[in-house]
């Protein structure tokens, strides 16, 4: 069962990338990290998924139900927070939720339930203007939970949060996914965060989906590089080149072979036979960050 499925989804803007021919497949129950550099089209995609923008071409299905600018019924299954939380700062946290509850014709109990879930019960009567950024972010999620959604769509939910706030939010999202089985679709710039909570990732670049699947499949596709820690890295590089490999000198004591042609044990044996001092030898898993930069052809700004 797919929580989100898009086919040929396209929306362009004058002078800006939108998204082109997007084919998203988000399995129900997954935590899907939607990655892409600034301007890649992440927010456009999210706005399309929430019928906040008109689709130019293609179709969207939420839990199998078609969604469009004019056909919005599937939104009853969706809770959302786009960029910053939409809150009325002059109202209390409870009043903010009450306004949304009334619009949704929800039960009064859903307010206390949402407050408890995000840990804001004690601060419910305080005005939102007195809330910290982290509390506002949690209240924003509580608003999204008012519909008791099956799908939570979050656009950059960690924006502006300090490390403690990020940890809190991560724990909350994992709890929602684990205990309630809510599918979470989140875009984020923080690759390390996505790496920790997402079961699936999608990588968007210039409006096009470069990859989607589980994190494992992404790693499998790219293969982990061979990392060799040794006494004389330059000499090891020469030997590896002599063996027909394409080594990379990472520093004076480390050599990497991104895609070895020979078996690992064979390379190890050859290096030892040539008298190199090998301190450590093995595969080093790619970080999501490395894979992201490889996919998008970008380099980290140092």
């Amino acid at each position: 069962m797919l929580a989100i499925q898009t086919r040929g989804l396209t929306r362009r803007f004058d002078g800006r990338h939108g998204v082109t021919d997007l084919a998203l497949e988000v399995p129900a129950g997954s935590v899907y990290g939607f990655l892409g550099p600034n301007g890649a089209g992440k927010t456009t995609t999210i706005r399309l998924l929430l019928a906040l923008l008109r689709e130019e071409a293609g179709e969207i299905r939420l839990f199998g139900e078609p969604l469009s600018w004019t056909r919005r019924a599937p939104l009853s299954e969706v809770g959302s927070m786009v960029e910053t939380p939409s809150l009325y700062p002059h109202l209390s946290g409870r009043d903010n939720l009450e306004a949304t509850r009334l619009l949704l014709d929800g039960e009064t109990a859903s307010i206390d339930e949402a407050l408890a879930l995000v840990g804001l019960t004690a601060d419910a009567e305080r005005r939102v203007r007195e809330y910290s950024l982290g509390m506002r972010q949690r209240l924003g999620i509580a608003l999204a939970l008012m519909r008791r959604p099956r799908l939570l769509v979050l656009d950059e939910p960690t924006n502006g949060l300090d490390p403690a706030g990020i940890v809190e939010l991560r724990a909350l999202l994992l709890r929602l996914a684990g205990e309630r089985g809510i599918t979470i679709f989140l875009s984020s710039h923080l690759l390390s965060e996505v790496e920790q909570i997402a079961s699936h990732v999608g990588v968007l670049h210039q409006g096009q989906l470069l990859f989607q699947g589980t994190q494992e499949s992404l790693r499998r596709r790219h293969g982990d590089p061979l990392a060799i820690r040794c006494g004389d890295a330059r000499a090891v590089c020469d030997s590896l080149a002599h063996l027909g490999e394409q080594p990379q000198l990472l520093d004076e004591g480390t050599v990497s072979v991104p895609a070895p042609r020979r078996a690992d044990h064979e390379i190890n044996r050859c290096l030892i036979e040539r008298g190199h001092a090998i301190h450590a030898f093995g595969r080093r898993p790619h970080s999501l960050e490395t894979l992201f930069f490889e996919l998008t052809g970008q380099e980290a700004r140092t």
Binding site: A51, L75, V82, T84, L103
Partner: peptide
């Protein structure tokens, strides 16, 4: 201004309400 000022439209218009 209550809605414009705090970008409420993206919340309100994503609700399953006409």
């Amino acid at each position: 201004g209550l809605e414009h000022g705090h970008h409420q439209w993206k919340h309100l218009l994503a609700l399953p309400v006409p």
